[in-house]
Computed example of a mutant assay.
Amino acid sequence: MLKTYRGSCHCGAVTFEADLDLTQSSYRCNCSICRRTRFWPAIAKPENFRLLTGESELTQYLFNNKKNHHYFCKHCGVRSFGVGNETPIGKMYGVNLGCLINVTDEELSKVPITYVDGLHDKWQSAPEFFSHL
């Protein structure tokens, strides 16, 4: 069931709302950027994500095929969300669960996680080792 969550970067310059179903899987990936930033996203369809403040405070990072857009706050460096443009469900927002304000530790502890091997472009498979992700 969808629930509206509020979130922000660390300094609060970027704020957003997202309608998320935290009974659905979140993702942990071993690709170069997710591993380095410890990104833990839940998925929101475009109509379920609202950037409230701070659009001008974001910087965008693109690499490799430039299909996924990685956004960071210019001030504190936190990656609150990203946009996947060519995914199995079409365009989607990856909302960083660590940036949600009105979520409890108990709720987070129950969020299912799917591990993906983005490092080897095996998006339908878990990497051999993933407990560190």
Rank of each mutant, 00 (worst) to 15 (best):
F63T: 04
F72H: 07
T59F: 04
G77L: 01
K67M: 13
N68V: 15
P88D: 11
M92C: 13
I89S: 14
G84L: 05
F63K: 05
H69M: 05
V83F: 09
Y93V: 13
V83S: 07
L62Q: 08
K67L: 14
Q60C: 12
E86A: 13
Y71L: 02
S80M: 00
M92I: 13
K91M: 09
V78E: 00
N68C: 14
E86K: 14
Y93C: 07
V83Y: 10
N68P: 10
Y71Q: 00
N85Y: 05
Y61A: 02
T87E: 09
Q60W: 02
L62I: 05
N64G: 05
K91Y: 03
T87F: 07
G82K: 06
Q60A: 07
K91Q: 10
K67F: 12
G82L: 07
G82T: 06
C76S: 02
S80P: 15
F81T: 07
P88W: 10
G94V: 00
Q60D: 02
L62M: 08
E86R: 12
K91W: 04
H70I: 01
V78S: 09
I89L: 13
I89Y: 11
N65A: 14
T59N: 05
N68I: 15
L58Q: 07
Y61L: 03
F72I: 01
Q60S: 05
K91G: 00
G77Q: 03
G90C: 08
G82R: 06
L62Y: 09
E86M: 10
G84Y: 11
N65I: 11
